[in-house]
Design a protein around this nucleic acid. Structure first.
Length: 420
RNA sequence: GGAGAAAUACCCAAGCCUGGCUGAAGGGACUGGUCUUGAAAACCAGCAGGCGAGCAAUCGCGCGGGGGUUCGAAUCCCUCUUUCUCCGCCA
């Protein structure tokens, strides 16, 4: 949720800022509603104050066993005066809230105005690998190495899924364990979370109301299966006031991520590039507002550090305002090179939501001076393993169809250095 | 899934039957002070926080959430959520 005070004081500026993400908004109706709310509230509170005073007097007279009929006459006249106004007020507040929940976050000043096509590659790691043989794609590699089974997974589940078998499962698990160890080293708190969440959680994270159709809902339960661990991690401190010295708070979690991805299939995304379920380790930080830029850099450095240790060729993209997701003010993507399709695919997305999610979830902290303010929340994948595994297979493949295991993973694979 | 009990401010806890003087007793923690070489102890004092309206004085809402009854609700009624106990069922 964006800052209402800003809309009220300078709606034009907010409108301009949102234009950067190609989002056009009209505050006319909203401002009218706020106006109406204000006058209505004034009226209601006046009557309530009067009523409270009279009721108090009645209490006092009763205690003194005096006659109260005069006061009752007086109170009769205001008794129902605001009934209707109270209903109207509630209605207005619902409308205002619904309106606010649908507005995306304000992009940071330094982002380019416009969509995806303006994303900027700001750094590249390693040379693009070259091969002096005909390369295979990850589906062929994984299938011939017998580490992923697509057909049997389809049999039990349907399209858009796969199963890791034997060394495949171990490789996936090695990645996860490697990431977990790295995050622990950096003092992040390890969380295993519920995967079934309530509506409020999705609302706070910014998934809802806009993207309610992109997650799997449990029938008759008003609950959904998380599309990313972020949705849960962001709700740990919902409706809390954190102590000044508790910040920054750094968490990470491993969860599978479940997404509908309805109609998003592209032929280039065969195999495990896009599925209904994939694995990811996610990092989240709660910070003071003044520290969130630093935290962003830290998350970026951590995600990149993991990629570097894996020895993969990747690029970092700074997303243009229009490509930054709904709840975020800025996002950098780490995109890994997939030789078979000749493109870079996102394996990590590091974002700063600033106070956007905190406002939705009333995530606050007490400042040193005793006043209360919203935290900033940030998240970053660290990393999405299900896209990493194909990249490792493709980038590390050899002429004979075997694959070199990244050095850092060897200890996690019981000393295995080559998949063959 | 069935049956009961509970949810009060940072923590513990009174009040709820018998609605009004409860912006919520009492303790602990915390903060400040007295005392002390310093500390502890003892004693004294302070201590809902938050949200909303207003330039302000001040006012409104707040006793798990939502709704209702009433002139008036922490207190009565309904509902939801969560926790605990027992039974059933299981990993």
């Amino acid at each position: 949720m964006i800052d209402e005070k800003w809309i009220l004081t300078d709606p034009e500026a907010v409108k301009e800022a949102l234009k950067k993400r190609e989002y056009d908004i009209d505050f006319t109706e909203y401002l009218e509603l706020k106006e109406l709310r204000s006058s209505l509230l004034q009226k209601i509170e006046d009557v309530r104050a009067k009523r409270n005073k009279l009721s108090k007097s009645i209490g006092q007279l009763k205690r003194e066993k005096k006659d109260t009929s005069e006061l009752f006459n007086e109170i009769d006249t205001i008794k129902n005066a605001i009934d209707e106004d109270e209903l109207t007020l509630k209605d207005i507040e619902t409308q205002v809230e619904e309106f606010l929940y649908k507005i995306p976050n304000i992009p940071d000043d330094d982002l380019l105005a416009g969509g995806k096509e303006l994303n900027e590659v700001i750094s590249v790691n390693k040379e693009k690998p070259s091969f002096d043989f005909k390369i295979k794609d990850h589906v062929d590699l994984a299938t011939s190495l017998k580490i992923i089974d697509y057909e049997r997974a389809a049999k039990m589940s349907g399209k858009g899924t796969w199963m890791y078998t034997n060394l495949g499962a171990r490789l996936e698990w090695a990645l996860l364990n490697f990431f977990i160890d790295e995050h622990l080293k950096d003092g992040y708190e390890f969380m295993l979370l519920p995967h079934i969440l309530n509506y409020e959680s999705g609302l706070t994270a910014g998934q809802f109301p806009k993207f309610k159709d992109e997650v799997f809902w449990l029938e008759g339960e008003d609950k959904f299966i998380l599309p990313t661990a972020e949705t849960a991690l962001i709700n740990i401190h919902r409706n809390e006031i954190l102590k000044n010295e508790e910040l920054p708070r750094k968490y990470f979690a491993y969860t599978p991520c479940y997404r509908k991805e309805a109609g998003s299939y592209r032929s280039e995304e065969r195999g495990m590039i896009r599925g209904y379920q994939f694995n990811k380790v996610e990092m989240v930080q709660y910070t003071k507002p003044e520290d969130s830029d630093k935290a962003f850099d830290e998350l970026m450095a951590k995600a990149e550090g993991l990629m570097k240790q894996l020895g993969l060729h990747y690029q970092v993209s700074k997303l243009a305002a229009g490509d930054v997701s709904f709840a975020m003010a800025r996002t950098f993507d780490i995109e890994v090179w997939l030789p078979s399709i000749g493109i870079y695919k996102e394996v990590s997305s590091v974002s700063n939501s600033r106070a956007f999610q905190a406002r939705r979830g009333k995530i606050r902290y007490r400042k040193e001076d005793g006043t209360v303010d919203f935290c900033h929340t940030l998240n970053g994948s660290g990393l999405a393993t299900s896209r990493l595994l194909p990249a490792i297979l493709e980038q590390n493949q050899q002429a004979d169809g075997s694959v070199l295991v990244p050095k850092v993973l060897v200890p996690y694979l019981g000393g295995i250095t080559v998949l063959k």
